[in-house]
């Protein structure tokens, strides 16, 4: 579809993109500054801050822990979210809207409130498994992303195709794998990617639930900011941005899915 877009719309889009992207460029520029503290605009050029960050066992540990946590959370969210989304879109369930409202509510309630509520809840239960707490906390805030994107793909899936396949002799499990799956796969992958990134970037939930042995990278970044103010902070931030970007690019390349289109 090649439609001519009016110049006014182009300008508005350019401004919005600039506002979204510009702040991301700032840490990138600051991270290469050859100064002992953060300055903007950067002075000189060095990659030593990246080297310092990558050599730091604490930073590495936090980064790996965040990866592990995000992977677990994504798996759990998909396992819970796919059947839930399928059920809510395919069947008429009493109280459907209320259920959906509750599941999506973490998108509305400030995360910090959800975090403190979880902390209180866990301490009342005398529940001390930190990793499990983090997984539960992150899943609560990640699940809405999975549900929304997977539901959308189920709503858009053409039911006629399933009827056609059944008439052609496909038993239900074959209909699910050969007809439904190819249609909902993009939505599931998009949900998974968003879920992973939300978990990986989460600060307000982790802040309440983490401990010294389970210390996600956003928390680490914050403590570093409090301790010192050298460009290694910008290097960590830049690495996180690169990582998220890489994730999206890989998914697009490997699965050939236009995530931007699905996010809308």
């Amino acid at each position: 579809m090649t439609e001519t877009v009016s110049p006014a719309i182009r300008i508005v889009v350019a401004i919005i993109l600039l506002m979204v992207v510009a702040p991301l460029v700032v840490p990138l520029l600051m991270s290469i500054s050859d100064t002992a503290f953060i300055v903007f605009p950067p002075q000189g050029f060095t990659l030593k801050w990246y080297a310092a960050v990558l050599a730091n066992p604490e930073a590495r540990g936090s980064f790996l822990f965040s990866l592990e946590l995000a992977a677990i959370v994504t798996t759990v969210s998909l396992v819970l979210g796919i059947p839930c989304a399928a059920g809510l879109t395919r069947f008429k369930v009493p109280g459907q809207d209320i259920m959906l409202g509750i599941i999506l509510s973490p998108l509305i309630v400030p995360l910090i409130v959800t975090g403190i509520a979880l902390l209180q809840f866990f301490s009342m239960m005398n529940f001390r498994a930190t990793l499990l707490q983090l997984v539960i906390g992150h899943t609560v805030v990640c699940l809405p992303y999975v549900i929304r994107s997977v539901s959308a793909s189920f709503v858009l899936a053409n039911r006629n195709l399933e009827d056609a396949a059944a008439v052609l002799g496909a038993p239900p499990h074959v209909v699910a794998t050969r007809i439904v799956w190819p249609q909902v796969r993009p939505g599931i992958l998009a949900g998974g990617v968003f879920c992973f990134i939300v978990s990986f970037d989460d600060y307000p939930i982790s802040m309440w639930l983490a401990d010294g042995n389970h210390f996600p990278i956003p928390l680490y970044l914050y403590t570093v900011i409090e301790r010192s103010f050298d460009p290694s902070i910008a290097a960590i931030a830049s690495l996180m941005i690169f990582f998220a970007l890489l994730l999206v690019l890989v998914i697009e390349r490997v699965f050939g899915i236009n995530l931007a289109r699905l996010a809308s």
């Binding site: 053409n158 006629n160 009827d163 056609a164 059944a166 008439v167 002799g169 496909a170 038993p171 249609q183």
Partner: peptide, 20 residues
């Protein structure tokens, strides 16, 4: 008898071809 075991042919209104 379930649909997939009736051995019928069917043409749907919008053809219902598998797009993938």
């Amino acid at each position: 008898l379930p649909v997939h075991r009736r051995n019928l042919g069917m043409l749907f209104q919008n053809y219902a071809l598998f797009p993938h």
